[in-house]
Every structure is written in structure tokens, then in C-alpha cells.
């Protein structure tokens, strides 16, 4: 739990919801894009891989180390490898766009004409947050 918890983060959608109380409400193929910007170097150091800096296929060193890897260790390793690949430009990162339909649950929702979903959802989710 310890190591994994330090790396595991909420989903972008969950961060939007839990931290900002925002529901995107229009996640689609068109609204997920590939971003071409890089992650700043400063963050590279915090989660950069310590030993596995080589670009070997991750599958190859599964059985290295102490023979058996727990699921938790695997997830941590995959996370680090992915981060490292993004930082070194091998992978590009994702971008969630178009907040036109997004609902801010902190705002008393002004009802847009023809849009009746917001209020019901806000009510429901506000109760959920309070409960939480």
C-alpha cells in the first residue's frame, strides 16, 4: 500500500471531480487528444526510474531481481517506465479538451435552455460529496 499509494493518483476525471468538483460530461474520442508538450524536467527527477533507464522492453526483466514480483511492484514499475518514456519523448501525453458541457458542482447551476441534466446531477453529486 505504501509505495503504490505514493504513485497512484486519481484519474484526470477523478481529480476534476474530487478536487475541483467539476464533471466533464462530454468525454469522447474527439475530446481526448494527444498533447505534444513535454513534462518539465523538475518532475522528471521525482519519478524518474532509478535503475531501469535503458529502453529494454519491460517484459524482458520481469523475472529479474528476486524472481517474483508482486502486482503492486509491477504497477509501480509500469508507472515509472511510462513516465520515463513520456519524459524522454518516446510517448506523448494525453489532453482532455472541450469543457463546454462541463458542470461545476460548486456553482448553483444556471439552467441552460434545453439542458435539464445539470441540476439533477448536481443535486445527486452534491449529496454524494457531502456524504463522502
Amino acid at each position: 500500500m505504501t509505495l503504490l499509494a505514493s504513485l497512484t493518483t486519481f484519474t484526470a476525471l477523478m481529480v476534476l471531480f474530487e478536487q475541483y468538483h467539476i464533471l466533464h460530461r462530454d468525454v469522447s474520442v474527439n475530446n481526448i487528444m494527444i498533447s505534444v508538450t513535454d513534462i518539465p524536467e523538475s518532475e522528471a527527477s521525482t519519478c524518474g526510474p532509478s535503475r531501469k533507464t535503458t529502453n529494454d522492453s519491460p517484459r524482458d526483466d520481469n523475472t529479474g531481481d528476486n524472481g517474483e514480483e508482486t502486482l503492486e511492484e509491477k504497477l509501480v514499475r509500469w508507472y515509472r517506465e511510462r513516465r520515463h518514456q513520456i519524459q524522454s519523448g518516446i510517448l506523448r501525453s494525453g489532453l482532455l479538451i472541450d469543457f463546454d458541457y462541463a458542470a461545476d458542482l460548486d456553482e448553483p447551476s444556471p439552467m441552460a435552455p434545453g439542458d435539464r441534466t445539470v441540476r439533477v446531477l448536481s443535486f445527486f453529486l452534491s449529496s454524494l460529496i457531502d456524504f463522502h
Binding site: 484519474t11 481526448i32 511510462r82 510517448l91 506523448r92 501525453s93 494525453g94 489532453l95
Partner: peptide
Amino acid sequence: IRELLSVLIDILDSK
């Protein structure tokens, strides 16, 4: 494919 999955993870799993 790795990039596609990684992008989806970014949306579902970003700091």
C-alpha cells in the same frame, strides 16, 4: 498502441 494506451491512462490517471 503503447502510446494510445498511455494517452488514455493520462486522462484516466494524471497528477
